[in-house]
Amino acid sequence: MRVRVNDVVLYFDVDGCQLVPDGATMVERPTIVLLHGGPGADHSVFKPAFRAAAEFAQVLYLDQRGSGRSDRAGPGSWTWERWADDVVDFCDTLGIVDPILVGTSSGGWVALTAALRHPDRVSKLVLDSVMPGSAQERPAAFERLGGVEAPEAPEMAGRFDPWARLDRLACPTLILACADDPVATEPAARRLAEAITAAPVRLHVLPGTGHGVFREAPGEAFGLLRDFVTEPGS
């Protein structure tokens, strides 16, 4: 499906119903908006695994501008702020009042930016393998996994720097990290959790996993997601 949001047409897909029967009444379930990484990947990275989340929530898969089946628009609009605003405007266009944003890798940067820029529009936040480690941590992690001849860890986009604003994050946040992630390192995930001081935060580090908790350990990851999404107020 496609919907116009500002100057672009964005592609999205849906798993699960927002309203489900409960006896003689209809009950509204939470709505999850999935944000892929890359930048430049698309929503298909979440399929078919995230069908599991449709058991307890409505799941929306979004191709961000410049990615997948959405309009490219142009490199000048490929910024964390524009991608984040697109997510909020997308939700407004579809009438999604209290979205739960789930971002993996750089999609977590988009989700976090949206929650910081629009604190009244994001009900909960899930960040999977998001925060890049320091210049010292990344090479050490690559060497631990691949030996001394492993290539240097790639540099992450330096312009993403939310650290000074994290104390203003307002929504409950679930941070998922892989113990053996050579890019979004475990120490960086712990620093992220410690920097969020104004909202409830949970951190789970999964052993024996690389990058992308939902891909590497789906059983445990979806159990944690279900608990977080369905618990009132988290």
Rank of each mutant, 00 (worst) to 15 (best):
G37T: 03
V201Q: 09
F90H: 14
L10P: 04
P182T: 04
I175C: 02
D92A: 04
I196A: 07
S106T: 15
Q58A: 02
M131P: 00
R51W: 10
S70Q: 06
H43A: 14
D7Y: 08
E137F: 07
L225N: 04
A184R: 03
E216W: 03
L169C: 02
P232S: 12
V213K: 04
T93L: 10
V126D: 07
L94V: 14
W163Y: 03
V8I: 08
Y61S: 00
A184I: 03
V87K: 04
H211F: 03
A164L: 13
C91M: 08
A193P: 07
P119F: 11
V59L: 05
R191H: 12
P151E: 10
T173I: 09
G108W: 02
L10T: 07
F142I: 05
F214H: 15
N6R: 15
A84N: 02
P154I: 06
W109G: 00
R65Q: 10
W83A: 15
V229N: 09
D71H: 05
V87E: 00
G76V: 00
F160K: 07
V122W: 10
H36P: 08
I196P: 09
T185I: 04
A24W: 08
D42N: 15
E143H: 14
C171E: 06
N6L: 15
I96F: 08
A150M: 12
F142N: 08
P30E: 12
I196L: 09
P182F: 01
P218Q: 10
T113S: 12
G23Y: 01
P21M: 08
A53N: 12
L101S: 09
E194W: 06
T209G: 08
W163Q: 10
P154C: 01
F214N: 14
P99T: 13
A140E: 11
S77P: 04
P207Y: 15
L112C: 02
L101D: 09
V201G: 01
E55P: 00
P187Q: 07
F160P: 01
V97P: 01
P154K: 04
N6D: 15
D161F: 06
R190L: 05
V229P: 04
H204Q: 14
R4V: 13
A217K: 05
K47S: 11
L34N: 11
A150G: 09
